[in-house]
Each structure stands twice: as C-alpha cells, then as structure tokens.
C-alpha cells in the first residue's frame, strides 16, 4: 500500500511538472498550436484544390472531413509523441536527467505520469484544432457518432503510448541524434498509417507495415464514426488488433526503455549533454 502511494505521488509529480512547464512555456505552446491549426487547414484545402485541378465533380465535403479527421488525429498523435517521446530529451536538455533518475521513483511512475498528462493535453489540443478548422469549412458533423470516436481513440491511445515510450529511449542511446530519430519515427507513422489517404493506395509491403500501426485502426474507426456515424458494434473488428497492438507494444516499450536505461548507466550516457 505504501509502495502504491509512493508511486502514485511520483506519477503525479510528472503530471504537475508537465502542467507547470506548459504554463511557463505558454508562448511556445501557442506557437505550436497555431502551427498545428495551419497544418490542418493546409491539408484540408487540398480537397477543394483537388477539385479545381482535376476539373471533375467529386465529393469534396466528404474528402474535406476525411482530411480533417486525419489532421486532428495526427495532431493528437504528434502531441502524445512530443510529451512522452521527448520526456528524456527534455530532461537531458534541462540537465535534470541525473537528479530525476537518481530519485527512488520507478521509471514506470515517470512514464505513467508523463503519459497521463500527454493524453489529456493532446486531447484538448486536438479538440481546439478541430474547433478552429471547422470554422473554415462547412463540416457536416451531425451524423457523427462521438461515442464510437471516443472509444476508438481511448483504446488506440494505449498503443500510441507504447510506441512513444519505445522511441523515448532513443535520446538515452543516441546523445546527439536521439531527438531527430524520434521525429523520424513519427514521420514513418505518418507515411504508413493512412493519415491523409487510405492505406490501400500504398504498395502492398507498406500497407502490411501500416497494419502494424495503431494509428491505422484509430483513423479507420474515427472516419467510420464521424463520416458515417458508425456505432461501436459497426467498428468492432477494429478493436481486437488495437488491443493486441497495445498489449504487445506497451510492455515492449517499457522493456526497451529499461534496457536503454541500463545501457546508459553502463556507458555513462546519462551525463548531462549540451
């Protein structure tokens, strides 16, 4: 019981830390929010632009919503990766990594607290992006089934976290290139997960890789829920792969992180850098 309370407090420490950092760096957060909104708008305008270029009539409104869902889920995923994937990089940059790692809290508490904040913040941020983008387009959201969308994003988030924890180990291993490697991992997810197109348009081997990404199923479920008003039952086939991916990727992420930490302790890579 005492151990649970201790780890709970330690987890909360990371929630509070991230919240306080968010308040202190609010200017930067605003800049990144504007960046996410501009990105989403840019992508969404591809739909009416495509109609102009092709000179043919096609379901522009449906394509706009298809792309908007992609940008909003992408903004969410990106924020989770930013908060969790860069938790080590940030502490290394601040120089606090040694004092944090020397504390008696388990690494799991660090991951849990950072993840909890990341999910909550990413969710609010994604809603803000959706809200602003919807002002620019006549989005038909009346038929959307938000309960299904919420269920899909909740289950899918566990897999996102697993991937983020895994790539968070990279700055432990690669002092100078670790952060860039986190970004490359994110870019690869962008390519294979069908963020802006159905993954069926990819070459077979890339489509197969895309089937391993939780984002693929989250996007399929979100689009079914928002575009077609699908119920949870209608998208039931998406949950088993999401659960399996989560069950594999999250523990694997923790193991990879622990292994990377042991390697850092042996090679002296915890030492402040930069």
């Amino acid at each position: 019981m005492i151990a649970v309370r201790r780890e709970w407090r330690a987890s909360y420490a990371f929630v509070e830390l991230n919240y306080r950092a968010l308040k202190r760096y609010w200017g930067w957060e605003l800049v990144w929010l504007v960046f996410a909104i501009v990105n989403a708008l840019t992508v969404a305008y591809i739909a009416p632009g495509g109609r102009e270029v092709a000179g043919e009539a096609f379901a522009t409104d449906r394509l706009v919503l298809f792309l908007v869902i992609g940008t909003v889920v992408w903004a969410y995923l990106q924020q989770v990766f930013d908060s969790v994937g860069f938790m080590i990089a940030w502490q290394r940059w601040e120089g606090t990594i040694e004092s944090t790692f020397m504390a008696p809290a388990r690494r799991l508490a660090m991951v849990a607290g950072t993840s909890a904040f990341a999910i909550a913040y990413a969710f609010v941020r994604a809603l803000l992006v959706l809200g602003v983008v919807s002002l620019f387009f006549d989005l038909d959201l009346l038929q959307a089934n938000w309960l299904t969308a919420l269920a899909v994003i909740c289950v899918g988030s566990v897999g996102f976290l697993g991937l983020a924890v895994m790539v968070a180990a990279l700055p432990l291993l690669f002092l100078e290139r670790g952060e860039q490697m986190v970004m490359i991992s994110l870019a690869m997810l962008l390519l294979v997960s069908g963020v802006f197109y159905p993954i069926e348009v990819l070459p077979d081997w890339l489509e197969a890789v895309g089937r391993l990404s939780p984002a693929t199923y989250v996007l399929e479920g979100m689009r079914a829920a928002v575009l077609d008003g699908a119920s949870i039952g209608d998208v039931a086939e998406l949950f088993p792969p999401l659960v399996v991916i989560a069950a594999v990727v999250l523990p694997l992420g923790v193991v990879v992180f622990r292994t990377a930490e042991r390697y850092a302790l042996r090679s002296g890579r915890l030492k402040r850098h930069g």
Binding site: A21, E94, G95, A103
Partner: peptide, 19 residues
C-alpha cells in the same frame, strides 16, 4: 541543474514528490 523556467519552489516540490 533545474527546470529553468520553473521556480525553485516548483522544482523542489517536484523533487520532494519523487521522494
């Protein structure tokens, strides 16, 4: 080494929670 944008009190409370 500290979280530079945070105050001493915020930094130390964070550290205290870990302990």
């Amino acid at each position: 080494s500290f979280f530079k944008k945070l105050s001493p009190l915020e930094n130390l409370v964070f550290s205290a929670r870990l302990y």
